[in-house]
Design a protein around this nucleic acid. Structure first.
Lengths: 242, 242
DNA sequence: TCCACTGTTTACATTCGACGAATTGGCATG
DNA sequence: CATGCCAATTCGTCGAATGTAAACAGTGGA
């Protein structure tokens, strides 16, 4: 009898030792057995507990630190951390960037779909949730953009930053992370559209109106103002692309 | 004058060697100097190039692998990869989970804001973008959920999976990642609301209508059907919370 | 000529041991 | 009781050695 009817196990790409340690520790964290702020045993002790060398433990901890769930510092040890906006944003940005190539590429229209969905809703929510400090920052960014009217590069950054700040004003970090993920694409678009004649002043006017509606806590008004702004922006982009 | 109004710089503790190597390689990747599919030099060679030990290189590569930008396999080497949906979703989920505790906690209402924003728009886009295969999967999930009416646990999973599949049907991976990030929260909610009397059949009816509108490629109809479904779901939730 | 097998080489996986550097906490001193 | 110093802890980095998996190239047979 040859090996014809043997059951081939679903050959699980043998996880490396450090992968297994990573999963194990990660699961302890996600299951809340280890809470943020808590300190893990030393690398040496972990190695003993898992029966692996310290090198393996180090690589596992290093992976978790890269994911943002651990903060490991010299002399102190590894501390369970909460994944911050920066980490989440970075990963999502890498995801978007990576998805923009290849056959199943993320098309510009798809990013724009996300943007429209996000920004209209964000404008609405910001209008009813913005705190005084948020409004101050928005005003400040708007003023800076007025002054930077002739510097396309700087104006683009400020433009995108203005939109981001509206997301911050909602008080919902998820909105911030999402807008961060498409930030490079937005910046790219902005650089091109702002070069178009008359765009800077028009964009400034639109921003002024959005800001005014947010300050007035007018959710509907803020949303429709943002909607117009986006529609206009889209029109300019369509003209440039052709 | 004491140290009352001095600006304490966020003293950046000296980046470790492997952190610097990580940044260096990551920058090569984001700047497209290294394209997806390309192979990096061996760990040994990298160590020589950077003037560090192989251990340091290994930890750096391991970090990048955790971020999803590298795929390192035994015998072959490290290959630049595109960050996949799974990696992005995982990080975002960890972010959401971590944000649900503490004083600045992510409140349920905030997750619901994201959900409403996402699902209404997703339903609309899916209606005009869904492919036959997507529709098949949606129908299949719906059928399964019909059968699982009495198993709250299973029905909850299928319910959430149905919503996720609508996001998949848009063909836009960003929507999928976003819905994945709030999946645990959705599941939690579903488990509770589906326990309520009469909910299962009502949810099934709503799903049937959404599915029908998507199949009919009726964007407006799909959006409003989803809107009703969400409003209803929210009402049940509000009743349960009080 | 083409294909399958096999041995070699390359590259990662893991271990051990050692030393340096940063942090912490306790202890001695004034 | 406050201060400053020392010692223990823990991570950071290095180097060498051995095991394992994948790719490669050469060989023999059909």
């Amino acid at each position: 009898m040859t090996s014809e009817d043997v059951q081939f196990p679903t050959l699980e790409r043998s996880p490396t030792l450090s992968d297994r340690v990573t999963d194990s520790v990660l699961q302890m964290i996600t299951s809340n057995a280890l809470k943020p702020g808590e300190r893990l045993p030393s690398e040496r002790d972990l190695g003993i507990k898992f029966g692996v060398s310290r090198t393996v433990v180090r690589e596992a901890l290093r992976s978790l630190a890269a994911k943002g769930v651990l903060d490991v510092r010299t002399g102190s040890g590894a501390i369970v951390a909460r994944v911050g906006v920066e980490t989440a944003s970075q990963t999502l940005r890498l995801f978007v960037q990576g998805s923009r190539a290849g056959s199943d590429a993320l098309h510009y229209d798809q990013i724009n779909d996300v943007r429209e969905m996000l920004e209209t809703r964000v404008a609405r929510i910001a209008a009813r949730a913005a705190q005084p400090a948020d409004l101050d920052r928005l005003r400040e960014l708007h003023e800076q953009m007025k002054k930077a009217k002739n510097d396309v590069e700087l104006a683009s950054s400020l433009d995108v930053a203005f939109h981001r700040e509206i997301a911050v004003a909602t008080g919902n970090p998820l909105f911030v992370v999402i807008i961060d993920s498409i930030e490079p694409a937005l910046l790219e678009i902005r650089r091109k559209t702002l070069g178009s004649a008359g765009r800077p002043t028009k964009a400034l006017r639109a921003h002024a109106q959005i800001l005014e509606r947010i300050v007035a806590a007018d959710a509907e008004g803020a949303e429709s103002a943002m909607n117009e702004h986006l529609a206009d922006s889209r029109a300019v982009w369509a003209r440039l692309e052709s």
